[in-house]
Write a protein that binds this DNA or RNA. Structure first.
Lengths: 212, 212
DNA sequence: AATCACTTGCTTGTTGACAACAAGTTACTT
DNA sequence: AAGTAACTTGTTGTCAACAAGCAAGTGATT
């Protein structure tokens, strides 16, 4: 569909090898996102991904090595988008402000790209299984986000906006756990979660428990 | 191993049909827990479960209908244990007390039965996939827990220990999201989580944001 | 600028493992 | 002893993974 399996037809305008790879890569990641949303990770086959992307049944395996390798790539692709989205929202803010803006950015991301958000959460869940070949990716992403939050808290304490007895690492774990857990609850039962309201309440709670 | 495939050996002391089923059932659920911990849900086969339980490769399929059916049974089995554990801890308490005691019970459960806790969380994660045949089980369990928490909050407001402007449903969602998210973080990277400390901080946080 | 050796992208052939189901066998029940 | 329920074995279709081959792109030499 998206990719052209035979780019050099009659004329001399050929694609670069790197371009060919980039095109087929993106086509397969996109196909994977569609299929995961439709059928879940178990129901998604490498054959279906390759063919939906406009290639052969074998390309996905060839390119990504394994099903887990492909999921890892999808995971990284989406989380890259999310992190840049987040960074552009938070900017240089720190402390409680940063935490609140990040919550808003998260809600915005879920509203703007619900498909990406859903697939990312599905893949994070897949990383929970022992022997998961992309668990490390999930660990790294979550750890990085926790580190960012802990930094915001530390800076907030320094500038005096956050009470000095707050434990940055503990607050960060709690904050990331909230986001992760809320997203899970939303994923399995979207109607049961009013994300906007939950986030407004969460901001209030953050202020109450951290403000000096 | 645990189950006897041939209980009626030479003597006349035979087992009841119901007892036979109960024994093989339990043996297979136990085997499944072991195997899921070892190899994850994907790496666990129905054949391996049946044989590890001391039966044939086909019994697990026969009894539970499908892999999802078996996981659903395991999920229900463990969550039953957890809920009775929880109830015996909380008793008739309500409000902030109930919320704090439940956190303690949860930490205790994870310390006492880390294997069960891990498998339960792995299965909850599996329920995140679309088309998951036991998603409803996860939804029900989480919904029930949220309802319980919301009840505690409402009772706390009535008895005057919780501020009147707290939204019970929102607080409940936040509380359950915290537990779910924290368990996920613990599952993928146990060393990174100090559950005891996180829970102590969470209790403080709850008091600060809900106490009148 | 034409061609030739080489590399990389991609496809097709094949194998072993597994879930699911059907048909058969063994253990209990009345 | 006939019937029912627990359990096993035979079989099929699907899939991931790998291997071998084909096609497209690259770049050095002339």
């Amino acid at each position: 569909m998206a990719g052209n399996a035979l780019p050099a037809n009659g004329n001399g305008s050929a694609l670069t090898q790197a371009a060919r790879t980039a095109i087929s890569d993106k086509a397969m990641v996109d196909a994977a996102i569609d299929l995961i949303l439709e059928r879940g990770t178990d129901g998604t086959t490498l054959q279906a991904i390759g063919e939906k992307a406009g290639y052969s049944r074998g390309l996905a395996t060839y390119r990504f090595g394994s099903k887990a390798g492909l999921f890892d790539a999808v995971c990284k692709s989406i989380s890259r988008r999310w992190l840049s989205y987040l960074n552009s929202g938070v900017g240089n803010q720190v402390g409680i402000d940063a935490m609140c803006v990040a919550l808003d950015a998260f809600f915005q991301f879920i509203s703007d790209f619900p498909r990406d958000a859903r697939v990312l959460q599905i893949l994070y869940c897949g990383a929970a299984s022992p022997q998961s070949e992309y668990r490390q990716t999930s660990i790294n992403i979550h750890q990085r986000q926790r580190d960012d939050v802990a930094k915001w808290v530390r800076a907030g304490i320094r500038e005096g906006s956050i009470r000095g007895d707050a434990n940055p690492d503990s607050v960060a774990a709690q904050y990331i756990a909230y986001i992760s857990g809320m997203t899970y609850l939303w994923l399995i039962n979207p109607e049961s979660i009013d994300f906007r309201k939950a986030n407004e309440d969460m901001k209030l709670h953050i202020r109450r428990s951290l403000q000096k």
